[in-house]
Amino acid sequence: MKFLKLSLIIFFLFFNVSINAQSKFDKVNIKTTKLSDHIYMLEGSGGNIGVSVGNDGVFIIDTQFAPLTPKILTAIKKLSDQPVKIVANTHHHGDHTGGNKNLGDSGATIIAHENVRKRLLEKSAKSAIPVITFNDKLNIQMNNEQVAIFHVENAHTDGDAMLYFTESNVLHTGDTFFNARYPYIDINSGGSINGYINAVKSGLMVVDNDTKIIPGHGNLSNKAEYLTFLNMLETVKAAVLKEIENGKTEDQVSENTSLTKTYDDLGYGDHFINSKKMRRTVYQSLKN
């Protein structure tokens, strides 16, 4: 009897969690922004999606969460009657790869850095796993333009990729850019503050003042905002490094609001990563 009662409690707990999660996604709307004659940005819940449409089919960057796939496909159907042919993942996190299985089951080819495949192999269905991988860079000819895909090392994770649409002048940064907010640096997945800064510098090498930049999270961006983000990273790193050199502990740094005040006042800590977490993460990264 006690076992039955415990089983029922566990069932209802998981049932309620499932219902609440689905309810959250039911309220999500997919926003579409046109960036060129055939490139679009989709915003929903999770990482921003890039879309290329044309006679070659639909090419998308990242897939958000699995429950959102029907809404994402509905939004894409308004842009093209072609099927999703290729999916590129910017890294392995679930808010960017959750829909992989749905699209893989529908026949899409999934592409990502080799470290993304390794990490997804540990937790994902076969159809969600990239079937084409690369180490350094890859070029795709799609919908009358070359898409340059290049790996940036140990930034947000160890498998980050940026994608640049060479004719449309659109850069998708994945989570190596959180527009106007502190980024998530996943140290446990190989991320680092130094790699993150180098990734932004790499991205800046391919953009100009007219480039439309799709960040992993946040609003559509541009070179000026990208430079502001880089300045934030370098400023916070320098401030934390000075504290480390002065013998301050991780807890002392994480509690020192003066280190990030300039950007806290601009709202950078009002999102997924708050200012305390940012200071602690930078400390941990520099001490590793």
Rank of each mutant, 00 (worst) to 15 (best):
Asn135Arg: 12
Thr90Tyr: 00
Glu153Val: 03
Ala125Cys: 04
Ser124Gln: 07
Gly99Ala: 08
Thr90Arg: 06
Gly190Ala: 08
Lys118Ala: 11
Ser168Phe: 12
Val152Ile: 13
Gly159Pro: 07
Ala161Asn: 13
Thr173Ala: 10
Asn102Val: 09
Asp210Lys: 13
Asn179Glu: 14
His151Asp: 08
Val206Asp: 03
Gly159Phe: 01
Asp136Lys: 15
His91Glu: 14
Val170Lys: 06
Asn179Gln: 12
Gly203Arg: 00
Asp105Val: 05
Leu121Glu: 15
Glu153Leu: 10
His172Gln: 07
Val116Phe: 01
Asn100Ser: 13
Glu145Ser: 07
Gly104Leu: 13
Glu153Gln: 11
Asp175Ile: 03
Thr173Gly: 04
Val131Asn: 04
Ala108Pro: 09
Val87Phe: 13
Ile149Leu: 15
Ser192Asp: 09
His93Gly: 05
Ser189Tyr: 11
Leu79Arg: 10
Ala88Cys: 04
Gln141Lys: 12
Ala148His: 13
Asn143Gln: 06
Gly104Phe: 11
Ile86Glu: 08
Glu114Gly: 04
Gly94Ala: 11
Gly94His: 11
Phe178Leu: 04
Asp136Gly: 00
Glu114Pro: 01
Lys137Val: 03
Val200Asn: 01
Val170Phe: 12
Glu114Ser: 15
Gly159Lys: 00
Val207Gln: 01
Ala199Arg: 02
Val116Asp: 08
Thr133Lys: 06
Asp210Thr: 08
Asp81Met: 09
Val116Lys: 01
Val152Pro: 01
Ser192Leu: 14
Ala148Gly: 02
Arg181Phe: 02
Thr176Asp: 14
Asn154Lys: 12
Asn102Thr: 10
Ala161His: 01
Thr166Arg: 14
Phe134Tyr: 15
Thr109Val: 14
Met162Trp: 07
Asp136Val: 06
Ile187Cys: 05
Gly195Leu: 09
Ala108Met: 08
Thr176Pro: 03
Ile111Arg: 04
Val116His: 00
Ser106Thr: 02
His91Ile: 00
His92Thr: 05
Ser106Ala: 15
His96Asp: 03
Asn179His: 09
Asn102Asp: 15
Gln141Asn: 12
Asn100Lys: 09
Val147Met: 14
Gln146Arg: 10
Arg119Glu: 15
Gly195His: 06
Val207Asp: 00
Asp160Ala: 03
Asp208Ala: 05
Gln146Ile: 09
Asp210Pro: 02
Met142Trp: 12
Ile129His: 05
Ile149Cys: 08
Ile111Ala: 05
Gly203Tyr: 05
Asp210Val: 02
Met142Lys: 13
Gly107His: 08
Ala148Glu: 14
Gly104Val: 10
Val152Tyr: 00
Met162Tyr: 07
Lys137Asp: 10
Glu122Thr: 14
Gly94Leu: 13
Asn209Ser: 09
Ala148Phe: 15
Arg181Ile: 00
Thr109Glu: 14
Ala180Ser: 12
Pro83Ala: 09
Ile187Pro: 02
Ile185Glu: 03
Asp186Met: 10
Thr109Pro: 06
Gly190Thr: 03
Ile129Cys: 05
Leu163Asn: 02
Asn209Pro: 01
Asn144Thr: 09
Phe150Val: 00
Ile197Pro: 04
